[in-house]
Computed example of a mutant assay.
Amino acid sequence: MSKAIDFRPIILAGGSGTRFWPRSRRARAKQVLALDGERTMIQRTVDRLAPLAKREEIWVITNDLLSPAICGQLDVVPDEQVVCEPAARNTAPAAGLAAFLVERINPDAVLGIFPADHVITDEAAFLSVLEHGIKIAAAAENIVVLGVTPTRPETGYGYIETGSALDDGSLRVRRFTEKPNRERAEAFVAAGNYHWNSGIFVWSARTLANAIREHLSETAPILEEIAAAYGTPEFRKVFEKLYPRCENISVDYAVLEPRSAKGEHHSSLYCLPANFGWNDLGSWAALYEHQLEQANMADKYENVTESAGSMPLDAHGNYVYSPRKFVALVGVEDLVVVETDDAILITTRHHSQDVGKIVKQLATNGREELI
């Protein structure tokens, strides 16, 4: 990648990861857990970006509950660049704030927006595609999204419909579609010009800041005022007062969908097709499927167990996490069993997307110690 391009990764790490309860809690959410190996999700995110960005170029947007764990795990990122939101306002204000902060330093800097909790198995391919996207974003006021070639009609992901191809291998974006039903997902895969939305976006600080000014006209001045206070003694006070006034909306809905409505030849939206072993690990079932694909992670009956020993008897397709206990599986299939010090989750892989509902119910019942 050209040395002239100032690339700054923005890692979004404010989510609560409720679908990974009971391991994931408010103060130790999915992104600070080691769900897939010894390194935590956010550590692995930073690790894979290291070839393209220096430590002082990385920013993390999170919250006060998670910042102690994140700062402890990311000793390579300056603490002052771990920015703690005083209120959850989804990805558009978080990404927008990063854009306004960096715009004040270098408006031509290229920002990469990265979720903190995704798995990428082919890091060489990831870096190659990302470098390509950085060059496209630096060339003009372009917005680049990395689109994953779908391997199945997944209803849990957003989709990108692509149009004409350009000489550099990128595709023009026609529209974004949020999580479709099964019938539509099957039609998307059959059509051949749809990609999963990876949630990874590349654009210059100026491009994103201007997009927020255009599409979130009430939120943009708030973010600019917060960014202007950064580095002063008043920053936290200003942040806490103003940020909750921002619109609660994703960057997809706020910026990408209205941009795509301009038409593929006028939106400056580009998709780079990517095949680098991407998985957003959105549920226990997704983690099971990911680990099933990894060598030596499952037995011959496709049971994945992380325990102090296990014995399956007429059991098939189960996921079990019980690191300090021996687990016997007898005559069961497609279960998810997760044990922690204070809770046990028992569900099916089919219903694992509903685990977040338990967290909401616990909050309603006043069981704060469990969330």
Rank of each mutant, 00 (worst) to 15 (best):
R8P: 05
L12D: 04
G17K: 11
W21T: 07
P22C: 11
S24Q: 06
A27G: 10
V32G: 01
L33C: 14
G37D: 11
E38A: 06
E38I: 06
R39H: 11
T40H: 02
Q43R: 08
L49Y: 02
V60Y: 02
T62R: 14
L65C: 01
A69W: 06
Q81V: 07
P86V: 12
A87E: 15
A88W: 12
A88M: 13
R89L: 08
R89P: 03
R89Y: 13
A95L: 02
A95R: 04
G96Q: 05
L101Q: 05
R104H: 11
N106M: 06
P115D: 05
V119G: 03
T121F: 07
H132P: 01
A138R: 04
A138Q: 07
A139Q: 10
I143L: 09
L146R: 07
L146W: 03
R152V: 09
G158R: 00
G163I: 01
L166P: 08
D168P: 09
R172F: 02
V173N: 01
R174V: 10
E178F: 11
E178R: 15
K179P: 09
P180F: 07
F188S: 05
W196E: 02
N210S: 14
S217R: 13
E218P: 00
A227F: 12
A229D: 15
E234G: 14
R245K: 15
E247I: 02
V255D: 00
E257F: 13
E257P: 00
R259T: 07
K262E: 13
S267E: 04
S268R: 13
L269W: 00
C271M: 03
A274S: 14
N275Y: 00
W284L: 10
E289N: 13
Q291P: 02
V304F: 03
S310R: 01
P312G: 05
P312H: 04
P312K: 04
L313H: 12
N318E: 10
Y319D: 11
Y321Q: 01
P323E: 00
F326E: 09
F326M: 08
L329H: 03
V332M: 08
E339V: 00
D341A: 04
T348I: 09
L370N: 08
